[in-house]
């Protein structure tokens, strides 16, 4: 397969895999299709010691295709997940209804706290995730509605919430934001949203037009690297033969 045929969803999966580069022996907790394929791709290439689950209560021994089951190596019911969260040995990839330039995230509701205009999930595990261990985000449709100046409800904690006098905040770490347009982090001035690479075919203007705030390093951002032949094969044949990734990410 030639590299020219690499789809946007495949670049996204690759970028999601790289979220886990160097993660070691921790629990990878991706919350969407593309980030799940990414975590499993990392496990099959450079990060074999990652722990992955079936999304319910079983730790998977092998690395099966998304949506399929495989042999099990352990048990992780919900209450034990909270023990793992508190231990810090985890990297979660959450979604976001809103994300601001300091990394505050909302998946709870829109509007006032006690009478929202639209109800979503509530804060879920976002406050505990972000204050305890590495938390990255995956946004399948990068837009101004998601990348806002101010989130309505702070669920995932952003860098500007840190109290420098209080060591309880010392584990806050948001390594990556992967979107359908590119790869970002919070390495801009004062821990602000920064472009690391744009996917092939994406322009800086497109990112700027779809983000409410200024994106640091946008002009200098490179291009997301191409997957290797092995990575492409693993994505297409082993991990996602039914091409579920295309349903989540369009070019």
């Amino acid at each position: 397969m030639s590299e020219s045929t690499v789809t946007r969803a495949e670049y996204v999966v690759l970028a999601c895999a790289e979220i886990f580069s160097g993660a070691g022996e921790i629990m990878a907790s991706p919350m969407s299709t593309s980030s799940t394929i990414g975590a499993r791709l990392a496990r099959l290439t450079t990060e074999p010691d990652l722990l992955i689950t079936d999304g319910e209560a079983l730790i998977l021994e092998d690395t099966p295709a998304v949506g399929t089951k495989g042999p099990v190596e352990g048990w992780i019911p919900f209450r034990k997940v909270f023990d793992v969260v508190a231990s810090g040995r985890r990297h979660v990839v959450m979604g976001a209804n809103q994300l601001d330039r300091h990394g505050n995230q909302n998946l709870s509701a829109f509007g006032p706290l006690q009478q929202p205009t639209r109800q979503m999930f509530g804060v879920r595990g976002a406050p505990g995730n972000t204050i305890n261990h590495a938390t990255s985000y995956f946004v399948p449709k990068h837009s101004k509605r998601v990348f806002v100046d101010k989130v309505d409800v702070v669920c995932g904690v952003g860098y500007d919430q840190i109290d420098p006098e209080n060591p309880a905040y010392k584990y806050l770490n948001i390594p990556r934001v992967v979107t359908n347009l590119g790869v970002f982090d919070f390495g801009g001035p004062g821990n602000t949203f920064r472009a690391l690479s744009l996917h092939p075919g994406v322009t800086a203007e497109e990112v700027a037009e779809n983000t409410s705030f200024e994106v640091a390093g946008l002009a200098e951002a490179g291009i997301t690297r191409d997957p290797t032949a092995e990575e492409l094969h693993l994505i297409r044949e082993t991990l996602d033969p039914r091409n579920l990734r295309d349903r989540e990410v369009s070019a």
Binding site: A86, V123, P127, T130, I131, N132, V154, Q161, A168, Y169
Partner: peptide, 9 residues
Amino acid sequence: IRAGLGSDV
């Protein structure tokens, strides 16, 4: 507990 710090909880 650590969870809740810095958030709108």
